[in-house]
């Protein structure tokens, strides 16, 4: 079963890894001299001027890869979310709650990663939210939406924002990114998607109780 090289299979060669990738404490990156570009963690500007910011960006589709930030700029947010591979839970939650329409407006979407959801909810709890308690889930999602499409710098400049659900969030700058409330931080900010902005964050916001680790077998959601 040998194979020939497939044109569709080959992405453009990845850019060199910027030094800021070292911010990923859990990832053993070995960057040797001469190959790093000394970047700031900002991915390169796409054709429409799309620049995403944060340590996770280096690990998400970039350059000419399917799902790169520039390719999402013209898509409705509900569609763009499908291309950001760390957002499968959030994206499923948007579909489960019928919120995609709401996301076509000028809105800021603070989208927690799959790891964030797995760190917040037990498997059982997550299934309940996705399958049954969709009203509760919709409320949770609205705690991750802010009216107006704010870039991360705009969030920081505002200092405080109010979510669509009515929760006030303090925002402080952390490097080129932002801290939201006590603990959540942007890990890849400033995706454009139609009229919306998407900032990938590392914690689930809102006031639902944490249930992670409460499954009988301790086997986490993933």
């Amino acid at each position: 079963m040998t194979d020939t090289d497939s044109a569709t299979a080959r992405p453009a060669l990845r850019r060199t890894l910027p030094i800021a990738g070292a911010a990923l404490a859990a990832v053993l990156l070995v960057v040797v001299g001469g190959t790093a570009d000394g970047g700031t963690g900002a991915a390169e500007a796409g054709p429409t001027g799309t620049t995403v910011t944060g340590p996770l960006c280096d690990l998400l589709p970039a350059g000419a890869e399917p799902g790169n930030p520039a390719s999402l700029a013209d898509q409705p947010a509900g569609e763009a979310l499908r291309w950001i591979p760390v957002l499968t839970t959030f994206e499923a939650a948007v579909r489960a709650t019928g919120l995609a329409e709401e996301l076509t407006r000028e809105v800021t979407i603070l989208a927690p990663t799959d790891d964030a959801f797995a760190g917040k909810f037990s498997r059982t709890n997550l299934d309940e939210l996705l399958l049954r308690d969709t009203d509760e889930l919709r409320g949770l999602l609205r705690d991750h939406l802010v009216a107006g499409a704010l870039p991360v710098a705009g969030l920081v400049a505002a200092g405080t924002v109010t979510t669509v659900a009515g929760t006030r969030l303090t925002v402080t700058g952390v490097g080129p990114g932002a801290r939201l409330g006590d603990q959540a931080e942007t890990v890849c900010a400033d995706y454009r998607a139609g009229a919306a902005r998407i900032h990938v964050i590392n914690e689930v916001l809102g006031d639902l109780p944490t249930t992670a680790g409460q499954d009988d077998d301790g086997h986490p959601a993933h």
């Binding site: 497939s6 589709p61 799902g67 950001i84």
Partner: peptide, 13 residues
């Protein structure tokens, strides 16, 4: 033939 997962280089299932 290719699956959606293959053509998107794993970005989408």
């Amino acid at each position: 033939l290719r699956t959606q997962w293959e053509t998107t280089l794993g970005a989408q299932y």
